[in-house]
Amino acid sequence: MTIAFACVLFMGLLPYVAAGIAKKGFEGYDNGQPRIWLAKQTGFRARANAAQANLFESLPFFFAAVIIASVMHAPQARIDLLALGFVIARIAYLICYIANWPTTRSIVWLCGIACVVAIFFQI
C-alpha cells in the first residue's frame, strides 16, 4: 500500500473521529434520532458536527486526485507527499473548527485544497 493510499484510508475514517467528538460523553444523546439531537447542539459539539460534514465533502475530490494520479503513473513520491500534506491540513482543519479559530481554519482549508490541486498537476 502506498502512503497516498494509506492517506485515502485515513481520510475515509477521519470524519468518524469528528462525529465521536460531537457526541463526546453522549450527554442526552438520542441514538434513535441522532441527526435531530446533533442539530440541537451548540459550541464544540456543533462545530465538530459541521467539521464532520465538511470532511465528508472533501473526500471525493481527494480520492479522485490520488486515484487518477496513480492510474496515470504520476511520480509516487510527489503523490505521497501531497497526500500527506492534505491529511495534515485536514487534521489541523478539524482542530481549528473545534477550537473555533475561523481564520486559521480557512487558511488550513486552503492549504488542503492546494495539495489536492497539486496532485492533479502531477499528472
Rank of each mutant, 00 (worst) to 15 (best):
A65P: 02
W101P: 01
W109A: 02
I79R: 01
H73G: 11
A53V: 15
N54H: 13
F44D: 10
Q41C: 06
G20Y: 07
L9G: 12
F63M: 10
A65D: 11
P60W: 06
R78H: 14
R90E: 06
A65E: 11
G20I: 08
A53I: 15
T104I: 15
N31T: 12
I67V: 14
V17D: 12
E27P: 05
T42G: 09
F10L: 14
W101S: 03
I119G: 04
S106Q: 07
G85A: 07
V116R: 01
A114Q: 04
P34I: 11
I123M: 14
A69H: 08
P60G: 00
A4W: 06
S58W: 09
A118V: 02
C111P: 00
G43E: 13
I107S: 01
G112Y: 07
V117P: 01
Q122V: 02
M11D: 03
Q41M: 10
L82N: 02
V116E: 01
G20Q: 05
R105F: 03
A99R: 13
L38Q: 11
A19W: 14
A89E: 10
A64W: 04
L9R: 00
L110A: 15
Y16T: 08
A64I: 11
C115E: 08
F121T: 08
L9N: 02
A69V: 01
M72F: 11
